[in-house]
Write a protein that binds this DNA or RNA. Structure first.
Length: 262
DNA sequence: AGTGTATCCTGCAGGC
DNA sequence: TGCCTGCAGGATACAC
């Protein structure tokens, strides 16, 4: 869709989504062609002709849309006029998202700071266990830290921990090798099934074609406070720590170390 | 060094 | 109806 198109004009409607001055942002994009578009963690990375990349993090409510009809966009923040086809719009109600143009070396530094891709072969159970053993952080916070593993958000962190039978507040280093292996498998299953179902729509989320994802009904604990656990029927418990909601089954995910090991 | 907390912003649901 | 409060899929500056 985007590759091969030239960015002819940039209009910044809300500069607070930019990580650099509006003028720099626009100057570095104008006249460039979009090349290949990739994803790294939660970042969309579009390579630009002549070197450099446009990095977009959608935050909570951001979307990149090719806008044929203005009604598709409610809170446009940045509009790119392209050499062909409809304009590309970054639309974001809450404006927690971020856009930044950087050169290759800047991106390399940023990329290096991100943890492994959980669906790639560089993410191993053994490596996960070794990394966990160096942190006393609650495992849910650990999973949300993009420097540890890239791309896991609050929904999938809670879901994976439930699948693995691990309480969200367990210190990372308290996980046994067996538990780390279970968590590794649970993360992969949770993420790939979410991808297969085209993402989780709780309220706003739409894919790039404007279609809601199908994964919400597949969630086992997230958003299911007081509902019976699908595994043992115990009521799911919602609580807050680290300023984020956590959901777990008190029976399947005991706070203490599970019987297998310690 | 590694953690937890507060904060950015808007819209919506629910209680009164 | 309308006001108020709490909640939300993320990231990060800052204090401890």
């Amino acid at each position: 869709m985007l590759p091969g198109k030239t960015i002819e004009r940039i209009r910044v409607l809300h500069s607070d989504v930019l990580r650099q001055p509006s003028r720099d942002f626009s100057a570095r994009l104008k006249g460039r062609d979009f090349e290949a578009v990739h994803r790294r963690g939660k970042n969309i990375v579009a390579r630009l002709s002549g070197g450099g990349v446009l990095v977009v993090n959608l935050g909570m409510s951001g979307r990149l849309v090719l806008v044929r009809d203005e009604a598709q966009t409610t809170h446009p923040a940045v509009r790119f006029t392209l050499s062909a086809g409809p304009p590309l719009v970054y639309d974001d109600v809450r404006r927690f998202g971020a856009l930044e143009v950087m050169d290759e070396s800047e991106w390399a530094v940023r990329d290096h700071r991100l943890g492994p891709e959980p669906l790639s072969s560089s993410f191993t159970a053994r490596g996960l266990h070794a990394d966990l053993s160096r942190s006393v952080s609650p495992i849910r916070s650990w999973l949300l830290d993009q420097r540890r593993v890239a791309g896991i958000g609050n929904i999938y962190a809670n879901e994976a921990l439930h699948l693995a039978g691990i309480h969200p507040q367990r210190p990372a280093k308290s996980l046994s090798e067996h538990e780390a292996r279970r968590l590794h498998r649970a993360i992969r299953r949770t993420l790939s099934s979410a991808v297969d179902n085209r993402g989780t729509t709780l309220r706003d989320y739409r894919d790039s074609s404007g279609i809601p994802g199908n994964n919400a009904s597949k969630l086992l604990v997230y958003g299911r406070d007081q509902e019976p656990c699908s595994h043992c029927s115990t009521r799911i418990h919602r609580f807050v720590f680290g300023n984020r909601a956590a959901f777990c089954c008190p029976n399947c995910q005991p706070v203490g170390v599970s019987s297998s090991n310690g």
